[in-house]
Simulated scan of single mutants.
Amino acid sequence: MARRASAHRLEFEPAAIYQYPEHLRDSLDALPKCPGVYVFHGDSDVMPLYIGKSVNIRSRVLSHLRTVEEARMLRQSRHITFIPTAGEVGALLLEAQMIKQQQPLHNKRLRHNRQLCSLQVLDGKPTVVYAKEIDFSHAPGLYGLYSSRRAAQQTLLTLADNHQLCHGLLGLEATRVGRACFRASLGRCAGACCGKETVEAHNQRLLDALASVRVVCWPYPGAIALVEERPGMKQYHIIHNWFYLGSVEDLADAPRLKATAKSFDSDGYKILCGPIVRGKLPIVEL
């Protein structure tokens, strides 16, 4: 019996689906070639489709139009707005703040992580501590920012493997005082558990291994203004305890933003640590 010919299947090429968004032409023509944040708006007045940032708003937005994978978002878009900033730092801070506040449909969600934790090393012993319990902006001996206890412990396991650290001294397993742990017999522990290495030397090696992820305590007694400027625009980014409160163009307006941060903002910390600690931008103490 002869087989019936299979039905012809329609194949859709992404390029055939993509069409230049003529309905956005007016918005596109208005885009500036400066740093800032841009927003793709759909039918909703409350939830935008996408929020992005760039050192060149116009160039970055136009790159979306050349991406076939983003055709769906372009079809949903009704108009595009933008907010200029004085530089890249301001754009990064504003974008993170707006995404958390507005939760755009096509952005990766940035929410307050109630499980945010760190490794606190006091007297050589690492302990997992949570941002909801202690103030990460001022607590001493913190290393790394992790989304869960499991992630923090995995870091310790990796460090132990890479630096021959003792699971017993790290609190990862129970061991008897003075007796070699199982990993020591395999040559994976340098022997601080059984006297082959001093506990002090072991603890120092742990701190050295963690040094690159040390959480820096907020170095000022109060809020500061991080100064960023470009031709035609100057902004003061108001920061307190690594938390971005907002930006002003006149320092006299800063007091209305001076409020104590309610919680530690890991996103703000990652954006601000370099510019503040390394002195990349001028700082005014408030």
Score class of each variant (00 low, 15 high):
residue 275 P to L: 06
residue 193 C to N: 04
residue 243 F to P: 02
residue 277 V to T: 13
residue 225 A to E: 02
residue 71 A to I: 05
residue 83 I to T: 14
residue 30 A to I: 08
residue 63 S to D: 12
residue 154 Q to H: 11
residue 32 P to V: 01
residue 210 L to C: 05
residue 96 A to E: 11
residue 34 C to F: 06
residue 197 E to M: 09
residue 70 E to P: 11
residue 213 V to M: 12
residue 245 L to T: 03
residue 195 G to Y: 01
residue 82 F to S: 05
residue 256 R to K: 15
residue 253 D to I: 12
residue 135 D to L: 13
residue 207 L to D: 06
residue 9 R to L: 13
residue 7 A to M: 12
residue 60 R to A: 08
residue 60 R to L: 04
residue 96 A to H: 09
residue 269 Y to T: 04
residue 188 R to F: 15
residue 262 K to T: 14
residue 101 Q to H: 15
residue 11 E to D: 12
residue 175 T to S: 10
residue 134 I to C: 07
residue 4 R to V: 10
residue 84 P to A: 00
residue 80 I to F: 06
residue 6 S to A: 11
residue 178 G to N: 06
residue 126 P to L: 07
residue 120 Q to E: 12
residue 223 A to T: 15
residue 100 K to T: 15
residue 242 W to R: 00
residue 195 G to P: 03
residue 186 L to E: 09
residue 73 M to K: 13
residue 118 S to W: 02
residue 194 C to H: 07
residue 256 R to I: 15
residue 62 L to V: 15
residue 106 H to Y: 14
residue 11 E to A: 15
residue 219 P to L: 05
residue 111 R to D: 15
residue 2 A to P: 15
residue 150 R to A: 10
residue 233 M to K: 14
residue 112 H to S: 14
residue 97 Q to F: 15
residue 225 A to C: 03
residue 153 Q to H: 11
residue 86 A to W: 02
residue 3 R to A: 00
residue 244 Y to K: 00
residue 86 A to C: 05
residue 91 A to Y: 09
residue 245 L to Y: 05
residue 203 N to S: 04
residue 95 E to N: 11
residue 11 E to K: 13
residue 266 S to D: 14
residue 41 H to R: 10
residue 149 R to W: 13
residue 200 E to L: 11
residue 224 I to N: 03
residue 43 D to G: 15
residue 238 I to D: 01
residue 176 R to V: 13
residue 54 S to F: 00
residue 59 S to T: 14
residue 278 R to P: 05
residue 19 Q to A: 05
residue 203 N to F: 02
residue 280 K to G: 08
residue 148 S to K: 09
residue 228 E to F: 04
residue 79 H to L: 02
residue 189 C to D: 01
residue 171 G to W: 02
residue 213 V to N: 01
residue 273 C to H: 11
residue 250 D to E: 13
residue 233 M to C: 02
residue 239 I to F: 04
residue 262 K to V: 08
residue 216 V to Y: 06
residue 36 G to V: 03
residue 79 H to M: 08
residue 199 V to F: 05
residue 117 C to S: 12
residue 258 K to P: 08
residue 258 K to T: 15
residue 60 R to D: 03
residue 53 K to D: 12
residue 179 R to I: 09
residue 252 A to H: 08
residue 110 L to K: 09
